[in-house]
Design a protein around this nucleic acid. Structure first.
Lengths: 351, 351
DNA sequence: GTGAAAGCGCTAACAA
DNA sequence: TTGTTAGCGCTTTCAC
C-alpha cells in the first residue's frame, strides 16, 4: 500500500489527543484574555500541540476574524532600485516583530502608470493595508496623489514612505533633505573648505534643471550652511551621464571656480566628478574634497573612496510599517509625520 | 448616523443580485469545466459581479481547495545582496503570470544558521512550496544540504536557485560558471591580449585561497580558453579589500607579470585593480584590459568604465519558479537541471 | 442548467 | 473551567 498522504494536523487532532474540545485548544493557543484555563489543561494542550507539530491554519483563522494579518508593499517604480533592499528589510524587520506577513504587490504589465494590483489584493482579503513606497526625488510627481486618493476611495489603510505630498491625516516617513544638504556642507566647511560647489542635475532633456522640491530642499540646506559660515554658494547644473559625451565646457566651468569642495546630488555624479577632477589635475581630497548626497554599495572601492550620505530607507520603512500596523490595530499614532536623517559615510574623499 | 462600515462583497451578494444561487456564481467565476451554464445566466452573473466589484476571497477559496496558491522565497543569506533585486523580479515575473502570490520567508533572529520560518509558513498553510535561493559562490557550504533535507523531511515542494549540490530528483536553476570564465577569457583574447591574469580571492583569514567549486569552475573555463589559444595562465590570490591595507607586494606581483589583460572574480576586485594599475602607470584599456566576473550597478560611471559579466539571477529565478509551479500543478518537468549564462556587459575597460 | 447543503479549519458567543 | 455550536466565504457533490 502506498504511503498515506500526510494530512494536515488540525485543532481537532490536538483536542482529541488532549481529551478536550477544539475551543479549549483555541483558547490556549491564542492565549485568550478573560478566559481562564486550568494550568494542567493548558500544559497538556501545549504539550500535545507540540508533539503533533500543530500550527494553526493561517488562512482559516484569518477568515474567521476578518483580518489577513498581512500587509502589502506598493511601489511607484518597478522593484529595481537599489533602495528596495533597505526598504524591504525595514518593512520585514517590523512585520516579523508584529506577527504580520508581507506581500509585494506586483506591477501589472509594463510598469508605466499606476499599478492597481493592491486593490485586487485588498478586495480579495489578502492584505489589510498598504505600505506605499513613493519616490520623493523622482519625476513621477502626480502619482503619489493618485495612489493616495485610490487608497482613500477604497478605505484601504496605508502609510507613505519617502513621499512628497502633505495630506492631513496621512502618515509619512520621509527623508530630511534640507538637513542632508546642510550637513554635507558643514562637513566640508569643518574640513577647511572655503569655496564649495553644489553639482545638481539637468532633466533628461539635458536643458531644464531637474529641481523637485526635495532637491530644492537640499540646496537650501547647503546654502544655509554656507551662509552661516559667511561663504557664498556656487550652483552647477550638469547633464546626466555627462562623462559619456563631450564635457569640455563643464570642465572649464569647474576649473574657473577654483573650488576646494564639491557636493553632488547623486553618487553617480560624484564618481564622474572624481574622474573629471583627476583629468584637470586636482587631487582629491588634498586639493578638493567631495561628498555625494546618496550612496552606492561599493564606494569604498573607488579611488579615492567617495564620501556619501546614505539615505535612511531602512529606517523610513520600519517607521512607515510601524505606523501602518498601529493604524490596523487602532493604536494611536503619536507623530504621523516623521523625518529621518541620512547617515554620513565618510571616506577618503573628504579626509 | 455614522457611515456604515463598508462590508465585504461576497458571492452571496452577487448571487442575490443575479437571482441565482451562490454555487452557480462560483461555477461561472471559476469557469468550471463539465458544468454547463446557460449563456444568459453566465453573462448576467459576470455583469453583476463586475457591478459590485466582487473579488473572491482568496483565503476562503484557498482553505476550501487546500492550496494557498502562494510560494515562499527562502534565502540562505539575509536579504541584502544586490542579487536579490533580480531574484525577486524573476520570481514575481513568473508568479504573476501563473496567478500565484509570493511571500518572503523572513530570517528569524540575527541570521546565522538556517532559518526555519518557511517551515511554519508551510505548516500554517501559507505557502504551497519554496523557491530556495542558495549561494553557490559563498562559504555557507553545508547549509544547502541542510535546507534540502528539511524540505524533504516535511515533504515541501521546492526548487533550488543558484545552488551547488546535485541531488537526483531536485530541480536546479544554476549559473554556468565554467562558461563565464571561458567567455571572459575569450573576449580578452579576441581583443588581442596575450598575457592574461586571473585575480581570485583569499578567504576572510587572508591566507587560504577562497576556492569554492564555482570559483574553480570559472578558473577552469579561463584556463581552457587560454589553452585553446596556446596561452599560459597566471593565477593571483589577493586578499579582500586589499586596497585598504598595504599592498606594495601585490603591486610588484602584478608589475612582474607584464599582463595585458585581467579577469577578476568580483567587480569590487576589478575596481581595486583599476586603481592599482593607474598607480603603476598602466593605462586601461590601452595597456591592459580588464573584466570582472560579476557586476555592480552604475559601473558605467567608474573610470574607466569596468566591463563585467552580469550574473543571470533574473533568469535563474524565473526558471526556478516555473519549475516549482510545475511541480505544484503536477506538470512534468522536462529538464530539472538548468544552467544559465551570464550577460556580457562590455564597457571601456575592454575596448 | 441550477440549487441545497455539507464542510475546509478555525473562533467566539453562549450553555453547561 | 470547559464544551457546543454557529458561522467566516467559498467549493463541490448530489439531487432536482
Amino acid at each position: 500500500m502506498a504511503t498515506q498522504k500526510k494530512a494536515r494536523v488540525t485543532i481537532k487532532d490536538v483536542a482529541q489527543l488532549a481529551g478536550v474540545s477544539p475551543s479549549t485548544v483555541s483558547f490556549v493557543i491564542n492565549n485568550v484574555k478573560h478566559q481562564s484555563i486550568s494550568p494542567e489543561t493548558r500544559k497538556r494542550i501545549l504539550q500535545c500541540a507540540d508533539q503533533l507539530g500543530y500550527r494553526p491554519h493561517y488562512y482559516a483563522s484569518s477568515i474567521r476574524n476578518g483580518k489577513s494579518h498581512t500587509i502589502g508593499v506598493v511601489t511607484t517604480y518597478r522593484v529595481n532600485s537599489m533602495y528596495f533592499l533597505d526598504l524591504i528589510n525595514g518593512v520585514m524587520a517590523e512585520t516579523d516583530q508584529e506577527g504580520y506577513g508581507v506581500v509585494i504587490c506586483p506591477h501589472a504589465g509594463k510598469g508605466e502608470g499606476l499599478s492597481t494590483s493592491f486593490l485586487d489584493y485588498f478586495r480579495e482579503g489578502r492584505i489589510d493595508g498598504v505600505v506605499f513606497i513613493s519616490s520623493a526625488h523622482s519625476e513621477e510627481k502626480s502619482h503619489e496623489c493618485d495612489y493616495i486618493s485610490l487608497f482613500r476611495k477604497h478605505e484601504i489603510p496605508f502609510s507613505v514612505i519617502y513621499g512628497y505630498t502633505d495630506f492631513p491625516g496621512v502618515c509619512y516617513a520621509n527623508t530630511n533633505f534640507y538637513e542632508d544638504g546642510r550637513r554635507a556642507a558643514r562637513l566640508l566647511i569643518s574640513r577647511g573648505c572655503q569655496r564649495i560647489g553644489y553639482v545638481a542635475a539637468l532633466d533628461k532633456d539635458n536643458r531644464t534643471p531637474y529641481m523637485p522640491k526635495t532637491e530644492q530642499d537640499r540646496i537650501d540646506g547647503y546654502i544655509a550652511a554656507l551662509r552661516e559660515a559667511g561663504l557664498s554658494h556656487h550652483l552647477f547644473m550638469f547633464p546626466r551621464d555627462f562623462h559619456a559625451g563631450d564635457y569640455t565646457a563643464l570642465t572649464c566651468e569647474v576649473k574657473n571656480l577654483h573650488a576646494d569642495g564639491f557636493i553632488t546630488c547623486w553618487a553617480t555624479f560624484g564618481l564622474q566628478m572624481l574622474t573629471l577632477l583627476r583629468e584637470v589635475g586636482q587631487r582629491v581630497p588634498e586639493d578638493t574634497r567631495m561628498i555625494s548626497l546618496d550612496s552606492l554599495p561599493y564606494l569604498s572601492h573607488t579611488a579615492p573612496a567617495l564620501s556619501a550620505m546614505r539615505m535612511p530607507f531602512y529606517e523610513m520603512a520600519r517607521c512607515g510599517t510601524r505606523m501602518l500596523v498601529d493604524q490596523l490595530n487602532q493604536r494611536p499614532i503619536d507623530q504621523p509625520r516623521m523625518l529621518f536623517d541620512a547617515t554620513m559615510e565618510e571616506r577618503t574623499s573628504t579626509l
